[in-house]
Design a protein around this nucleic acid. Structure first.
Lengths: 136, 136
DNA sequence: CAGCATCCATCGAGATACTG
DNA sequence: CAGTATCTCGATGGATGCTG
């Protein structure tokens, strides 16, 4: 109670920062795009599309445009004739690797926690995690 | 090219883990709920609602239920008469603090990057970040 | 107090087809 | 090749009102 105002201010700032970061990585395909570019470094549109797999042109295009606006991705239209466009991460984009790792660690751990105990009770949760969305 | 299959497999696993983690923190209020419980440790429904501010009963209720299913939050119905329900983080829930910090760091840094250069070009982005969603 | 029921607006994303 | 244009659908969240 006594410390509430301080905590409130700080938490609110932090919460906003967290929301910024979440928004940055939001969208079903955003992390995958960044990962692909972390590994491959430079890819053009169709390569990226194949690399990721399952994403439509429209959605990928929108995703890239957003990342470009956020200065995560750099878009380079190649010289005439080729008709290709290359994408690569900016330095800022590359700096997201650490966060993605942290997310990955949490994701893995979470899956272990969920499946490690009381399977019956968490059946629905499991279905959600394994069945619908993130199936291999 | 040569290493592609390996990378593919590994990346896919990682991508799924990342999606799990993102899904875990998904929902507009989820990070705020976790933060509130990290700071306050134990809160009942209405306290939580006030602490967060701006969230409706319905949405908060749904958010808590989801977190409970994911073993992030523990729900304790208090003895008779009080009619209160307490919420607190599980150990697993508490372990999310590190990830939230990392997200916060990225969020802060991102805001600096976006506002640090070429303001004109990124006006739209700024509006998005400051105006609509994450305004103070 | 805690939370559910209902209605409604918005939005992300998939499918499909088309263009410079 | 690198997108854009529609259209549709489902999920999310806000507002409001009601209950044990």
């Amino acid at each position: 109670m006594i410390q509430s105002s301080n905590i409130h201010v700080q938490c609110r700032q932090t919460a906003i920062a967290i929301n910024d970061a979440m928004e940055l990585l939001a969208g079903k395909w955003t992390p995958r795009v960044i990962m692909a570019l972390l590994v491959r470094e430079i890819l053009c549109f169709t390569e990226l599309k194949k690399e990721i797999g399952g994403v439509s042109s429209k959605v990928l295009s929108a995703s890239l445009k957003r990342l470009e606006q956020h200065l995560i991705v750099e878009r380079n239209v190649l010289p005439i004739q080729t008709g290709k466009v290359e994408y690569q991460l900016t330095d800022h984009g590359k700096s997201l690797e650490k966060l993605l790792e942290e997310l990955s660690i949490t994701g893995v751990k979470h899956r272990i926690v969920l499946t490690g105990r009381n399977v019956t009770e968490n059946a629905r949760v499991e279905v959600k995690l394994y069945g619908t969305k993130n199936a291999l």
